[in-house]
């Protein structure tokens, strides 16, 4: 059976667009971040495409593309693993082509893959999470990764109304993920 793919170009479906914007807005709010973005994978061109942006770059990033096998987002999409990096401004070469085209060079970045059924749909990024008593670390990265998984389930359901997995199973999976996200948000109350 042919698997439906997530939209490769900025979605014209208002439900999908609203969902993606909501995901990135919430991710940014959870971490008090300067910006957040969702890039979806265009399997045809093997590019990552900015689909939703919150904060810095919101006005002009949507629709921009870059090669999917490169940089931090490329590693996240390729490996299916989340990543957290810091001290980016000290790194003179950090993805400058991409960063400059976004008009914003962050100092810290967390990125998690949007994965559904072992299939990478894209990458959720949070730029410059707010500093707390301790800097963002692996617990925060795990929270972002869980949230990204929930977002991927929702995205799959929204994109494909005839999803191959029964809707009840999808709902159960989304509820389980939501409970785990809420637990982690509770755990980081002192962050």
């Amino acid at each position: 059976m042919t698997q439906p793919t997530a939209p490769a170009a900025p979605s014209t479906d208002p439900v999908v667009a609203e969902l993606l914007q909501s995901v990135v807005d919430v991710a940014r709010a959870i971490f008090g971040a300067q910006a957040g973005s969702i890039m979806l994978l265009d399997h045809q061109s093997f590019e990552l495409v900015f689909q939703a942006v919150s904060g810095q770059g919101q006005e002009f990033l949507i629709g921009r593309r870059f090669p999917a096998g490169q940089g931090i987002a490329g590693w996240v999409a390729g490996s299916g693993e989340p990543m957290i990096v810091d001290d980016l401004r000290r790194s003179a070469t950090f993805d400058h082509e991409t960063a400059e085209s976004t008009g914003y060079v962050p100092d810290a970045l967390m990125a998690a893959p949007l994965v559904h059924d072992d299939r990478v749909l894209g990458v959720l990024e949070v730029l410059d999470p707010a500093p707390g008593p301790t800097r963002a670390g692996l617990p925060e990265l795990e929270l972002l990764a869980l949230f990204a998984r929930q977002a991927a389930v929702a995205l799959r359901v929204a994109v494909d109304s005839s999803a191959t997995v029964p809707a009840a199973e999808e709902r159960d999976r989304a509820v389980r993920l939501l409970a785990e996200v809420q637990r982690l948000i509770g755990d980081r109350a002192d962050w």
Binding site: D87, L88, A92, F94, L138
Partner: peptide
């Protein structure tokens, strides 16, 4: 050791990152 590790990155740079990696 996998938290806040200073690591080599592209272009001769270093940055800090965390993970089992």
């Amino acid at each position: 050791p996998g938290v806040d590790v200073e690591v080599a990155w592209l272009g001769g740079a270093t940055l800090r990152s965390s993970g089992n990696s």
